[in-house]
C-alpha cells in the first residue's frame, strides 16, 4: 500500500457527542428521521389501496388494524411526520432559493415550522382520528 492510500485514523468532525443540541440541528435531524418514516408510511398507505382493491375481507383485516390503538398511533404519527416534513421542506425550498440564511431568520423559520406542524397535527388528531 502506498503512503497516499494508507488509512489515517483522525477524529472525525462534527463531534456530535460534545455539541449541545440546537434548534437548527435538531430540526435538521428530524427532517431526515420523518423522511425515512414517511417512506415506510408510503408503503403502508399503498398497501391500504391494494387491500381495498383485493376483497372486502382483506380490507376489513387492514381496517381492523387501522382502527386499533396501534393503528391510530401509526396514523397519528404519520400525520405528524407529514406535516413536519412538509413545513420544514418548504423552509428548505426557501433556502434553496437563497433566502433565510441569517441566523435569526433560520431560528424564526424553525419556530414557525414547529408551531405550524404541531397545530396541524393537533387539529388532525382531534378532528379526524378522534384521538383526544
Amino acid at each position: 500500500m502506498s503512503v497516499a492510500n494508507r488509512p489515517v485514523h483522525r477524529p472525525l468532525s462534527p463531534h456530535l457527542q460534545v455539541y449541545r443540541p440546537q434548534l437548527t440541528t435538531v430540526l435538521s435531524i428530524l427532517h431526515r428521521a420523518t423522511g425515512i418514516a414517511l417512506s415506510v408510511g408510503a408503503l403502508y398507505l399503498a398497501t391500504w389501496v391494494i387491500y381495498a382493491a383485493a376483497s372486502p375481507k382483506a380490507y376489513a383485516l387492514f381496517q381492523s388494524f387501522n382502527t386499533s390503538i396501534v393503528g391510530r398511533v401509526v396514523l397519528g404519527g404519520w400525520l405528524f411526520c407529514a406535516f413536519y416534513h412538509l413545513c420544514n421542506g418548504i423552509r428548505h425550498l426557501f433556502w434553496d432559493a437563497g433566502y433565510g440564511f441569517e441566523l435569526k431568520d433560520a431560528y424564526r423559520s424553525g419556530w414557525i415550522v414547529v408551531t405550524v406542524s404541531l397545530i396541524a397535527t393537533a387539529v388532525s388528531w382531534v378532528v379526524g382520528l378522534r384521538l383526544v
Binding site: 404519520w78 407529514a82 406535516f83 388532525s124 379526524g128
Partner: peptide, 13 residues
Amino acid sequence: FAISLVMLSGADY
C-alpha cells in the same frame, strides 16, 4: 391527502 386520510381513516369498504 392528509385531509382525506383524516376524513377516511375509519371508512368501511
